[in-house]
């Protein structure tokens, strides 16, 4: 199980799970999935694509609306969570287990926050 207290967060509610060798798993946080409601579709990059910090790398659609996914890191996509493509509802069920892409040589965007900073950011956003 991934511990949400160990993750880094962007203001657009993506999380990063960075390992020591600079490979990173990317997902969206509980606040984002709850705001979107039932997620029914996800569009992700292909393995081998590069993602840029602060740029769109895909989109998720709920019944209500579409939201862009903004990459919190730069790097090369080495794995895509195919399970989410068949069952995007997993993002609602377990947002911190439902990683979307795995990126190698990942460089964090500026201004990512830890959990405590993110909590106060969300509090101020309300």
């Amino acid at each position: 199980m991934r511990d949400e207290r160990d993750l880094r967060y962007s203001k657009t509610h993506e999380w990063v799970d960075m390992s020591d060798d600079n490979t990173a798993y990317i997902g969206i946080d509980d606040f984002a999935q709850s705001e979107m409601g039932d997620i029914v579709f996800i569009n992700l990059p292909d393995v081998g694509d590069t993602v840029e910090a602060g740029e769109v790398f895909g989109d998720v659609e709920s019944v209500k609306a579409v939201s862009d996914l903004i990459s919190p890191v730069s790097g090369k996509v080495i794995e895509v969570n195919e399970e989410l493509i068949d069952n995007p509802g997993l993002i609602n069920e377990e947002p911190y287990e439902a990683w979307m892409i795995k990126v190698e040589d990942a460089q964090e965007a500026d201004g990512l926050m830890d959990r405590a900073e993110m909590d106060s950011f969300i509090e101020n956003e309300k």
């Binding site: 409601g37 039932d38 029914v40 709920s62 019944v63 209500k64 609602n92």
Partner: peptide, 9 residues
């Protein structure tokens, strides 16, 4: 209300 706790689905 656009949805309640159960959600649209």
């Amino acid at each position: 209300p656009v949805q309640y706790k159960a959600g649209v689905v």
